[in-house]
Design a protein around this nucleic acid. Structure first.
Length: 797
DNA sequence: GCCAACGTTGGC
DNA sequence: GCCAACGTTGGC
């Protein structure tokens, strides 16, 4: 009959989206049933099985049992491709030459069905099924003839999945029961005339023993009509909701695999949709509206109020996976499945746009895997980055050296470092961070790399905190990066296990690694925004706070010298407690204004061109001499971290700018021990500012600003903390005393910065998912929280 | 949690 | 059958 149909419909109509949807839904219908009855579901208590399957059903059951990822669509398609299932598309193996799957013509020719059938593992089968399902979106003449009838078979299969139904078994005598996708006999097998609602004996389904099914249902569904479930499954499986969340709209497109499906409707000239629509009309008397989901379903008896899905759901109290159809192209739909809760733990790599023919999924997890398997077969390649485009091994990296062709022992079996995708490769996020220089990283990666929140650690043994005379020279001697040879640089950097060093232009600087975190120095070669900027390192902050507190006169007159990023000509001396303590720093003379609010880096950290703190007293004495030499910026000294000149952006201060109260408090703070890494600065206003110098602190970008009258204001990442914040209520309005300040700082240290929420709407797939905050974000929240309540439920404007 | 080792599998 | 390399696992 299929042959006849195909002959009669040589135009091989293309499924429009609205056609594809019902086709999918019909095929997908058993998904929930499968999953529900999947062995993975421990709770499952109403698995419907059949003791023995008729031969004509067995082929479809091959190795399906126990696969938690079973998707009935794949199952369906596997049937279609039973003899020749499409090759498994897994992310393994050599990256294929880019092929976008079977062409339509190939598909029509049944190209996929010509491959040898060999036993595959469950994973392979799954992949195959997925691919097959994907293929269903491709218009095929046989599809329209199969969609409807097959539903019935599928349901029976899904409800009868048993371990014993395994290998391929010759088609049933009914003719082509196990017909593959393009197999005409299959149509005969499940042809509409075989469905006769007036007779529920299913004479055309020799394999189904209703009695068996009902018998098992009895045990799982007491009190219910034991026959209704299998009947419904058999008769109108597609009527039932695909998922609880499926929209009525989709369901409205879902056509019904009606028992009354007229064979004449499949005369080959009617599209699937037409046929199915007709089927719906003809089966309307059987339709009822499910009380659970409101969807039409086939009531098998008077009084049926719930569709099968809702009944199952009610029984199991477990939400089955959601099957959604997503339009991926004008005429193609892709099926999404809600990821299994267990898999929600898996981290999904950020996805980026691909070739123009590719569709970047916007969510999901399993579907992503599926997507990559289907689309590119290799999730670890974006196909766009330089690494992916590179087709030659460097022959120098560890992975290359491991390859037999380079004389290696093939133990690692990994792709060349330089060919590891910058976006998709797991190794990029693991080993790759050391293997790929920052210069080759995209801004996104740089952000990731520099974001301490990700806690990307540098490899290697943490260095002991050992201060030499000049901590700046301590590590510079270790590395030398050549900017000329990118490969060499990459290789060297990939071999780096210690701290990272970048030499560029003015400064050669490095960071030491703390035991708990790592400080990454952004490569400054190719990023202007990062040029001459350094993130204040934790250890240095420790030095700034602890060392300076612990040392006395030697450091007292040194203070913190730094150049504000973007203001190369200006240097500032940050007054700190020791500085004030010594009294060597005269207020109007050396304390420059520190408009920190304007100098916060994008990531919330202070971006300082150069920092010099924590050296030994002797070193500082040296520095003092330099600074005493009028602090004139010398271009030739740009390679040294020594500070240039000092002047205040505040300009000449007037007497009125000096607030005795603030100065007194400033002095008092200098004589006190503040919480770790907090320093006190007086800026123009005058305003007394308390800064957290450690980037590892959650308060790294929080500033406490005390103004005249000791009124204070807290800013977080340049944003003022709203006065309604509870922080203010916990502390006096005016911070007149050191105790008040210390108490506030301690309180702050117990807080963290609200991370906001991700704004998915404004980002293109290539852009990083930026977090935004709600308008009334609390900014400061308990450390353990990720975001405040307002950002957890942002109100979109 | 990292990562070396290796089973595995698609492509050729 | 070989190659490439993905994904998993156990040791650390």
């Amino acid at each position: 009959m299929t042959d006849e149909l195909n002959e009669l419909s040589p135009e091989s109509e293309i499924l429009k989206p609205e056609d594809a949807v019902p086709a999918y839904l019909n095929e997908m219908h058993p998904i929930g049933e499968d999953v529900d009855s999947d062995v993975e579901d421990d709770d499952m208590s109403c698995k419907v099985t059949v003791e023995l399957l008729p031969d004509w059903l067995k082929p479809m059951e091959e190795e399906e049992v126990g696969v938690d990822e079973l998707m009935s669509a794949g199952r369906i398609n596997r049937r279609k491709t039973k003899e020749k299932p499409p090759k498994v598309k897994r992310g393994r193996g050599r990256p294929p030459k880019i092929r976008h799957g079977l062409s339509r013509s190939e598909f029509k020719k049944g190209l996929h069905a010509d491959r040898t059938m060999k036993k595959k593992r469950v994973g392979s089968l799954m992949s195959r099924k997925r691919l097959s399902r994907k293929a269903t979106s491709v218009p095929d003449p046989s599809l329209k003839a199969e969609v409807l009838p097959r539903t019935r078979q599928r349901v029976v299969r899904s409800s009868t999945s048993t371990p014993q139904s395994t290998k391929q078994v010759p088609d049933s005598p009914a003719g082509g029961t196990s017909a593959e996708f393009n197999s005409p006999p299959r149509l005969t097998r499940v042809s509409p005339p075989s469905i006769d609602t007036s007779r529920r004996s299913f004479v055309h389904s020799p394999s189904v023993k209703v009695g068996n099914v009902t018998q098992q249902i009895i045990s799982t569904e007491p009190g219910k009509d034991v026959s209704e479930l299998p009947l419904q499954l058999w008769l109108c499986p597609s009527l039932e909701p695909i998922s609880p969340t499926q929209t009525q709209e989709i369901l409205s497109q879902q056509t019904v695999g009606s028992p009354n499906f007229p064979e004449a409707s499949l005369n080959g000239t009617m599209t699937v949709k037409e046929s199915l629509t007709m089927t719906v009309k003809e089966s309307l008397p059987l339709l009822s509206e499910c009380e659970g989901c409101g969807c039409p379903f086939s009531a098998q008896k008077h009084g049926d109020t719930l569709c099968y899905r809702c009944r199952i759901k009610r029984e199991k109290k477990r939400s089955p996976p959601n099957i959604l159809c997503r339009k991926v192209r004008q005429d193609q739909w892709e099926v999404e499945k809600e990821k299994h809760p267990r898999k929600q733990m898996l981290q999904r790599p950020q996805r980026y746009g691909k070739t123009e023919n590719d569709i970047v999924p916007d969510g999901g997890d399993d579907d992503d895997e599926e997507y990559w398997r289907l689309k590119k077969r290799n999730r670890r390649m974006c196909q766009r980055c330089d690494a992916c485009r590179r087709d030659t091994d460097c022959g120098k990296c560890d992975f290359c050296m491991d390859k037999p062709k380079f004389g290696g022992s093939n133990k690692k079996r990994q792709k060349c470092r330089l060919r590891q995708c910058k976006f998709q490769s797991k190794l990029q996020f693991r080993n790759g961070m050391k293997g790929v220089p920052t210069s080759s990283l995209s801004p996104i990666k740089k952000m990731i790399k520099s974001n301490k929140l990700l806690k990307i650690k540098k490899r290697g043994r943490p260095r002991k905190k050992k201060f030499k005379n000049d901590p700046w020279e301590e590590e510079e001697e270790d590395y030398e990066v050549s900017d000329n040879d990118e490969d060499d640089q990459e290789l060297r950097s990939s071999e780096m296990n210690g701290s990272q060093v970048r030499k560029h232009g003015k400064w050669s600087y490095t960071f030491k690694e703390d035991e708990d975190d790592a400080a990454y120095v952004e490569d400054v070669v190719d990023a202007n925004i990062e040029e001459d900027s350094v993130i204040l390192d934790n250890e240095r902050s420790v030095m700034a706070s602890n060392e300076m507190y612990n040392t006395t006169s030697g450091l007292s007159s040194q203070g913190l010298y730094y150049n504000v990023s973007g203001m190369p000509l200006s240097s500032h001396l940050i007054g700190s407690a020791p500085i004030c303590n010594s009294g060597a720093v005269a207020m109007g003379e050396v304390i420059g204004s520190v408009p920190m609010a304007d100098e916060m880096s994008q990531n919330g950290f202070l971006q300082i061109e150069m920092v010099k703190v924590g050296s030994s007293p002797s070193h500082y004495r040296e520095e003092q001499q330099n600074t005493q030499q009028m602090h004139i910026a010398d271009p030739q000294q740009e390679h040294t971290p020594v500070i240039t000149q000092i002047f205040s952006l505040a300009g000449p201060e007037t007497e009125s700018d000096r607030d005795p109260g603030l100065i007194e408090l400033f002095t008092s703070l200098g004589q006190s021990v503040l919480p770790a890494h907090w320093v006190c600065v007086i800026a123009k206003g005058p305003v007394l500012q308390l800064l957290q110098c450690s980037k590892l602190s959650t308060m790294a970008d929080t500033v406490v600003q005390i103004e005249k009258g000791f009124f204070y204001q807290v800013t977080v990442q340049n944003q003022p903390l709203l006065l309604m914040h509870s922080l203010y209520s916990r502390h006096p309005t005016c911070l007149e005393k050191v105790e008040h300040v210390v108490s506030l700082l301690l309180d702050l240290e117990a807080l963290g910065v609200c991370q906001g929420y991700q704004n998915f709407q404004m980002c293109s797939p290539w852009e990083p998912k930026m977090c935004v905050r709600a308008a009334l974000c609390d900014l400061l929240i308990p450390k353990d929280d990720e975001h405040c309540g307002k950002c957890s439920q942002p109100v979109e404007g």
